[in-house]
Nucleic acid binder design. Structure first.
Lengths: 349, 349
DNA sequence: TTGTATGCGTTATCAG
DNA sequence: CTGATAACGCATACAA
């Protein structure tokens, strides 16, 4: 049933040229006459010839393939990928396609081999890591990649000693923007729900931005307002419960992810508090649902298209052995309904 | 910087065996002594040897790679992939990994070459198509794949003449379940928002299930209650507007996707109608947000893990030239808050 | 501008 | 059980 694949030799025979000329013609080499090129292309079309990419990759050095390795964030078989990464993955696929890269995607496997199995087995020219939450887990892998010289980029963390290139949002600035917005609206008892430990640099930086905004406003950081939580919605629910159950007064919550914020808003509502009248809520990520929630969620947005470009361009540079610079994408405050107030007027005060 | 890749010859030299034996040992061939195998594995580990997959693929026939080709559904650069596919993609990545397949993912490119460029150029053993909305657009591509003998599967459409294998939800059953649920709750004027034309077989079948449930209940299908809409949230908003602006009375809406349902609920709320007291709403897909909406959305759920298994197992069979059977996954009604009533009690009547 | 010869790193086919 | 040897299909020096 399977049609016999024609090879470049078949094309050569049909076009009346050598196999070398076929190879050159198909590669748009200038070293081939127009006439020969035309005959080759015709023959190729007639036989429905496609280059065998494996032979090409074996012979030449470039693989023209990027691997995207995603660490499963949620222990949820329904939704194994952190929703924030989804538009980012979409943008990566789009831009990689434009740049002529194939994209290989893998969810984290238990296997120790995960990640060592790409560049060095010549599957891909480079690796993009997404969703490495606890970076200490990965140092072993990162060091391996460095030792064998495989190019790689991580999304998200702002500094990673072993990394030649890091692309991420400026999480500190994002945390600052969010908190500053709440302060501008007159909120004073602002809770933080999320990770704040050094093992989670992305979230820790959001927390740092939060602290900076408070300090700048002359408000002391109150640890009672800080609730440890990872990124899932359920933890947002639990976070609000903890604050309320401990009778900690607060008039705003800055959540380190939109998922947390969604849970927080639901629980606030359930416990009889109105968002934004009683409590303002800000999230982080700008998931596509934010605008569909009621109230629509004010949040910090990360530009996934720019991120994808930075990741892929940077990785390309690493592959080509060109110099690279770490990039921090500027986050943007997206004002919706969950904070209340008349932000424009307030800001003008 | 880039470390010199060791080849199987290097391993052979270090282990004191022939290169052939190295290849066999690494392939777990039984034709090699335990002793030789051990020495080879040690040498391989010492030199950090990894098989060059390109050489392997060139020489052997199997590529051990599946291509997932996703047609962009939403003309939205934020969110180029239909949210329903995201958990499905996650499940595919997971199961493919378990089965030892690499996964290559591509968003639809404008290029005519899209899709012809995978199997026949020996990038992948087979192709999974996701999100082909208007199937007529793809017949040309599908016929090409058939002619060259590349295995492929489509998700979603229940019958496609040119396809050797189709995996999808039983959309008709899903539409029936949804509508039947509304009828059981006493709703009688049930609107349908979505595509119902033959060019969109998935949605058309949901509509057919809707019609069957109505007919079975002795209720005539009223075309005034049928609103043409694709899958985006905004169209759900517009759909409700159309019904209300035309003064069509209705007490329930069955939306062909959850996104439509989200838009519909928002607009109903905005127009002063209460969900579920005034209007019940049912969606389709069970996106992860459904449970976080207020009211939480009753919907028809598709089992993405089972779907991924069916897609990959089926495609594997095609690749191995084994017989295959089309599969329709049974959808499930997930009852939440958006329909109101006491469904369990009602159903028991 | 074209062609010849060679090799990329494996796996498959033989013969021992 | 093991090892020579021959492909796999293409791209690249080198020669013409």
């Amino acid at each position: 049933m399977k049609q016999q694949r024609p090879t470049s030799l078949d094309i050569a025979a049909l076009a009346g040229v050598s196999q070398t000329t076929v190879s050159r013609a198909l590669a748009q080499s200038p070293l081939v006459s127009e006439d020969a090129k035309r005959r080759v292309l015709e023959a190729a079309k007639a036989l429905r010839y496609k280059v065998d990419v494996n032979a090409r990759k074996l012979r030449s050095k470039k693989i023209h393939t990027l691997a995207v390795l995603i660490s499963e964030d949620l222990d949820n078989s329904e939704n194994p990928i952190n929703p924030f990464f989804l538009p980012l993955i979409g943008s990566i696929l789009k831009y990689a396609g434009q740049q002529g890269y194939d994209v290989l995607i893998s969810l984290q496997q238990k296997s120790d081999e995960w990640g060592t199995d790409y560049g060095f087995s010549r599957r891909a020219d480079g690796i993009i890591f997404l969703g490495c939450k606890d970076f200490q887990v990965y140092t072993h892998l990162f060091e391996y990649l460095n030792e064998v010289g495989d190019p790689w980029v991580v999304w998200g963390v702002n500094r990673l000693d072993c990394a030649r290139l890091v692309i991420g949002s400026d999480n500190e600035a994002g945390g600052y923007l969010a908190t500053r917005h709440l302060l501008d609206l007159g909120r004073r008892r602002i809770a933080f729900i999320g990770k704040y430990q050094a093992e989670h640099p992305e979230f820790r930086d959001r927390y740092r931005g939060y602290c900076r905004a408070l300090t700048e406003a002359g408000i002391a950081v109150d640890d009672a307002l800080r609730v440890d939580a990872f990124l899932a919605r359920e933890e947002g629910v639990a976070g609000v419960d903890r604050l309320l159950d401990n009778n900690i007064p607060f008039d705003a919550v800055f959540c380190a992810t939109d998922l947390l914020a969604m849970g927080a808003m639901q629980e606030l509502h359930k416990r009889g508090l109105h968002v934004p009248n009683d409590v303002s809520v800000v999230g982080f990520d700008d998931l596509w649902v934010c605008s569909s929630l009621s109230p629509a969620l004010t949040t910090i947005r990360q530009d996934t298209e720019a991120a994808a470009r930075a990741l892929i361009d940077g990785l390309s540079s690493l592959i080509e052995d060109e110099p690279v610079v770490d990039t921090q994408m500027a986050p943007k405050l997206v004002i919706r309904e969950s904070c209340g107030g008349l932000p424009n007027l307030m800001a003008a005060q």
